[in-house]
Computed example of a mutant assay.
Amino acid sequence: MATFVLIPGACHGGWCFRPLDDQLRERGHRAYTLTLTGLSERRHLLTSAVNLQTHIEDVAAMLVAERIEDAVLVGHSYGGMVISGAADRLPERVRSLVYVDAFVPTDGDSCWRLTNDEQRAWYASVDETGFGVPPLPFYDSRATAHPLATLMQPIRLRGEGPFRRTYVYAKDWPTTSPFAPTYERLRADPSWTVHALDSKHNIMRDAPADLLETMLAAA
């Protein structure tokens, strides 16, 4: 049995991993789908003070509260920043990391630094609050504004942990994928297991069976 902790990308809640988490449980694993502070059913907590460290603490606190010691952290898109920080904070509680078409930062990186100009323009299109990045028009109707500070704050990482690392790349982007440079870098690194799927960015929705098998292999 493995313990999966599933972290959504920008503007999304834990619901984006259904029914993937149900299938994990049906196979005898534990699955936790986490909604980060200020998003979805926790959108009432969105303030200018919510930053990347807040979201890293969300995951770290859950690992401690649930007494998880062998987590497979799965992060989609922005969630790659969060699982990187949580694993660095509590490496003794993490077994492996799965990045689902996601950012893979090094110390000092931010989403703003790692992404492309198209995505930066989206980040800058804040709503009337001045600190919420609105969901894109094609997102699920449940998507909510995302805290701008989480996309701008540099991450602080102390070092490489002894984790298995898997990257899942989505090849079907309507424009240039902001994750293409990450994919090219990691597929040349023998310490990573890298997969490229004929899927749009929302791999959980568009290629769930392939993603499920990849996650199980990572565990």
Rank of each mutant, 00 (worst) to 15 (best):
V104R: 04
Y32N: 01
A170I: 03
P208H: 11
H201Y: 02
L46N: 04
I83L: 09
L46V: 11
S96D: 06
Q119E: 15
V168H: 10
M1F: 09
F17G: 00
S40C: 13
W15R: 04
A10M: 12
L186F: 04
V133W: 09
L197M: 11
W15M: 13
A143G: 09
A196V: 04
N51Y: 01
L114P: 00
V5E: 03
G13A: 09
T54S: 15
G75Y: 09
V72G: 00
L212R: 09
D172M: 14
H146F: 09
P137E: 00
R142N: 12
S77P: 05
T35K: 05
G80S: 10
V104A: 08
W122I: 10
I7Q: 00
T3D: 11
T144I: 10
L24F: 14
L136E: 13
L6Q: 01
I155M: 06
H12L: 15
E69P: 00
Q153I: 03
T54K: 06
R205I: 13
T144E: 01
P154H: 08
T175H: 14
F179Y: 10
W192Y: 13
L45Q: 15
E41I: 12
A31F: 07
P105S: 06
E26A: 15
R164K: 14
L114Y: 03
P178Y: 02
S199K: 01
G85Q: 08
S141N: 12
R187N: 06
M81D: 05
R185G: 03
P135C: 00
L212N: 04
P147W: 03
K200Y: 11
D88S: 02
A31Y: 03
M1A: 15
P190Q: 13
V126W: 07
H76K: 06
R42A: 12
S125D: 15
R165W: 05
Y169Q: 04
P181Q: 00
